[in-house]
């Protein structure tokens, strides 16, 4: 199973709409809406949040995303009422609701743990999320590569590929891309941004026809770069 998400909003429509949006990029993740009061007004409901916490928790924990002030208070209160064991598996993400939920959902779909999913949500706080971290410093010892790979014996492994799908790296392809990148331990950068950070990738605004540079300085990065390059060249199943 994966980490679950609980969306706490003052509005039932916001919570449900966001569940729909995030689920599109994160199949198999339990994303539960807890929006509005028990009788459907604007507000937050302790009972809905409490029920949502248990519905979202499959044993790997729950990351809670909240909108305005009292949503956080209601969530914190509901968490206080949990048993110690359950409480340890819940984290409230410090993140804007929509961007945070989407980033968290994709991270959860890749099998990230509670801390990593909350951290993925928090990347939504910064436009420079994941910028180039980890690239360039790792020791490299790569053999010469055949084919189109532009690499040297002791430099980083890099490939330039052109986005062929119509909409470029917009939400769904970006999510697919990040999920693939997350399967590898190696750090790969896309035009200098962390390939595992959905919001950093989406923030690049890469449209059809753009050439992107995939780079990894790590010994095991070649496989990751190749897989990602193939995914981009495949057009993500779009025409």
């Amino acid at each position: 199973m994966t980490v679950g998400l609980l969306i706490v909003s003052h509005s039932g429509k916001i919570a449900e709409g966001l569940v729909e949006l995030a689920a599109q990029m994160a199949e198999g993740v339990a994303i539960i809406a807890a929006g509005g009061t028990d009788d459907g007004r604007i507000g937050t409901s302790f009972d809905r949040v409490s029920a949502g916490l248990s519905a979202a928790d499959s044993g790997d924990g729950v990351v809670v995303l909240c909108d305005l002030g009292s949503a956080v208070l209601t969530a914190e209160t509901a968490i206080d009422f949990l048993d110690d064991g359950d409480r340890a598996r819940v984290a409230i993400a410090d993140a804007p609701l929509v961007e945070g939920a989407v980033a968290a959902a994709v991270a959860a779909a890749t099998g990230s743990d509670l801390e990593a999913v909350a951290a993925a949500a928090a990347t939504a706080n910064s436009s420079t999320a994941g910028a180039g971290e980890g690239s360039g410093d790792a020791p490299v010892d790569l053999e010469s590569k055949e084919g189109e790979a532009a690499t040297t014996a002791d430099g980083p492994y890099a490939r330039s590929v052109t986005l062929v799908n119509r909409d470029g790296l917009h939400a769904r392809p970006a999510a697919e891309f990040v999920k693939l990148a997350s399967r590898f331990d190696a750090t790969v950068t896309v035009n200098g941004k962390d390939a595992k950070s959905l919001l950093a990738i989406m923030g690049l605004g890469l449209t059809a026809g753009t050439t992107v540079d995939l780079v990894s300085s790590q010994p095991d990065g070649r496989q990751a770069v190749d897989a990602l390059a193939e995914l981009i060249e495949s057009g993500f199943g779009e025409s």
């Binding site: 028990d38 937050t44 409901s45 009292s70 209160t77």
Partner: peptide
Amino acid sequence: LISTVGGASGPL
């Protein structure tokens, strides 16, 4: 109060 108020004053 926590269950019925809905706004911030419920948890508070």
